[in-house]
């Protein structure tokens, strides 16, 4: 059985924010909610600056699933961590438990109060019938069910963000490391192609 993983290659990410925007648009997220964030580290420091795209990492031992007081999380056989929005009470415990700050809370509850949690589903929807209107409204697209790559990785222009079975993802990354070395390579990926060709 495949074990689905995200990987963002910091040597390739050019902070174009394409993944974050594509995700928001594809899943019709409310304003102010981004399931995916692009973080730039060592900003402005020559040769040390790099960016990574971060969302729910779909942990094997997902702490959100462990702390949830209403047990609304479930982990699919392929490792995708999902939750049931009709069970969630929006308490925020998953956010406190998450190392990556993935859970977010749109203010769409009664009288504009904090509503139930929203997070990256790896474009795999939720517990509602696959590709039903309700699933789409609550969780966004179910691209996995259609055999498509999650929106963020599909849109990534430098192929920095890769997603798939862990063995294949690590194989791709291993090949890249063999070719160009590990980690950040000072000049952003594709710079020489774009400007010095």
């Amino acid at each position: 059985m495949a074990r689905m993983k995200f990987y963002c290659d910091e040597g390739r990410c050019i902070e174009c924010l394409g993944c974050a925007v594509a995700c928001e648009e594809a899943n019709e997220l409310p304003v102010g909610i981004s399931r995916r964030k692009v973080v730039t580290v060592n900003e402005g420091m020559e040769g040390q600056e790099y960016s990574v795209s971060v969302a729910c990492m779909h942990c094997t031992d997902a702490p959100c699933e462990q702390v949830c007081p209403v047990d609304c999380f479930y982990i699919r056989a392929d490792g995708i961590v999902l939750h049931d929005k009709t069970t969630c009470i929006g308490c925020g415990y998953c956010l406190y438990a998450c190392p990556f700050g993935a859970p977010q809370f749109p203010k769409d509850g009664a009288f504009g109060t904090r509503g139930v949690m929203d997070k990256c589903t790896m474009c795999a929807g939720g517990p509602e019938p696959t590709n039903s209107a309700k699933e789409r409204e609550l969780y966004g697209q179910n691209r996995i069910a259609e055999g498509k790559v999650p929106m963020c990785a599909a849109i990534c222009s430098t192929n920095a963000l890769i997603v798939g079975d862990e063995a294949e993802v690590s194989d791709i990354y291993r090949k890249r490391v063999m070719q160009r070395g590990k980690g950040v390579i000072g000049v952003p990926y594709g710079w020489s192609t774009a400007y010095k060709g």
Partner: peptide
Amino acid sequence: GKELGGGDLVLTARY
């Protein structure tokens, strides 16, 4: 909340 099944009941309790 687990024992109560979560959802609207416990969400209302939170409010």
